[in-house]
Each structure stands twice: as C-alpha cells, then as structure tokens.
Design a protein around this nucleic acid. Sequence first.
DNA 1: AAACTGACTAATA
DNA 2: CTATTAGCCAGTT
Length: 112
Amino acid sequence: MAGSESYARIYEAVLRIPRGRVATYGQIAALAGLPGHARQVGYALHRTPDELAVPWQRVLNAKGEIALRADPIAAKHQRELLRGEGVRFRRNGTVELRKYGWNVVAEEEPDE
DNA sequence: AAACTGACTAATA
DNA sequence: CTATTAGCCAGTT
C-alpha cells in the first residue's frame, strides 16, 4: 500500500486527541494540514493499521455521533471505549461537542 | 480510464 | 431540529 503522507498526518492528528475528548473529522483534517478533506480523514481511519494503535474512536462526525454506518458492532465498541474515557453519550447516541469537543488551541502547547 | 462509492462538512431553507 | 445542494479526494470496479 502506498505510503501517503496525508495518511500519516491524519494518524498523528488523531493521536494528538487527549483522553476523554473527542474531535470531528473536519478538525482532524485541518489539524493534519488537509482543510476540507474531512472525507479523506474518514477513509484514512477506515484503513488505519492496528499497529499504530490510533484512537480512531475519539473521532466523531460533525453531529457528535459515531460515524460508522455499515459497522454497528464497531460503533457500539467505540461507544463503550469513549464511555470508559469519561465521555457521556446522549440518549440519541450523540455527544455534546460543546463540552467534550477537543479545544485544540487550549490544550496544545503555546509553543510551535 | 471513466464512473461509482464512501468513517464527511458547511451553507441554505 | 430535518432536508437539500455542493464540494472534496482516494480507493474500487
């Protein structure tokens, strides 16, 4: 498989997400240096190698819900993982991005 | 090589 | 809140 640099950037961005926090695809895309390529982020995560141990579960869509469509099992697993990290889900299966959304500016070091 | 598909987002109504 | 439209790009067929 081709070693796309974009993929590596996406993985790094996801790895930057602090525990107990969630990020949207658009955020990851922008953080990875690919603004507007949210779709590609999802594709990259789908192809994420297990060796990298990327916390893809912390990546949600803009609505704050599990993005997975054709994989309800994995989605359930993801929900459990997030719950274990302290993320509370609403009854409709969405997360309050207003509260759990990863504020990059606040968490990141002032340097760089 | 053209068309189709997909872990998406944002704007508008 | 939902529905619709348009944009985006890599992987499959």
